[in-house]
Design a protein around this nucleic acid. Sequence first.
DNA 1: CCAGCCCTGACAGAGTTGTGTCAGGGATAA
DNA 2: TTATCCCTGACACAACTCTGTCAGGGCTGG
Lengths: 125, 125
Amino acid sequence: MASTTNLTIHEAATATGWSPRMLRYVEQLGLVEPTRSSSGYRLYGPGQLQRLSSLRALLETHSVELGDVGFALRLRRDQELASALGGWFDEIPTTPETFELPDLPAADERWLAFEQDKHQHLLNL
Amino acid sequence: MASTTNLTIHEAATATGWSPRMLRYVEQLGLVEPTRSSSGYRLYGPGQLQRLSSLRALLETHSVELGDVGFALRLRRDQELASALGGWFDEIPTTPETFELPDLPAADERWLAFEQDKHQHLLNL
DNA sequence: CCAGCCCTGACAGAGTTGTGTCAGGGATAA
DNA sequence: TTATCCCTGACACAACTCTGTCAGGGCTGG
């Protein structure tokens, strides 16, 4: 039992600030899936504790719900869906009669746009 | 002026299969925002009718909820959030054995940049 | 052995979402 | 003018999400 510290669900809960119930829920959403002992007990490793903690932080700082993160995960996995969504967003501009005059962006703005595009690919939108 | 057929909300509704109530709701989610007449009536242009129809199709075929699309939109707009999420997904693999936190003392920004770059390459496979 | 964990499944209550409908008050057009 | 649309705001209600808690039953360590 020594090697890598694997915590049981209750220990992991107190360690990360979730309730055991919520850890099961988070698992059900596919967000953090612990391994199981031979008899079926959930075992949380250090990486998963880390994930659980940062997940908490993420929710708080960005006021996002667990379900939203679950949906983002679905977007990551279902590429079909992701590109369908992305396609819809880009399909025909939202306002019909507006036509954009492409003003020249400054270098900074260009950089920003690049960054954003990069991140966008991150979520496959 | 003539031109672009602009439908009122009820017309747009019957044309696209939504209810007027739902069109207002879709607008509130920021998904399809019609222009307004001088007296405040919603006016839907052809592009928006198209968007409304394809939105319906999207929901059906991929079994996605309006709220999900709303969240995807939020992801598109709030890049901060998008990369926070992306970062979380890639943070330390799900399997527990892995351990070893990045104790890089270098600037956080450097680390972040590296992470983001990594993501990009991952997607460009 | 036995207290105290763990498992799954289920129900319950608060809160949120999705959708209809209605009320009070302008706008429009026959 | 009058019928018929539109607006916003609000209430209503089913369905769903989130979270706790409990029950029946299996492990586990002292």
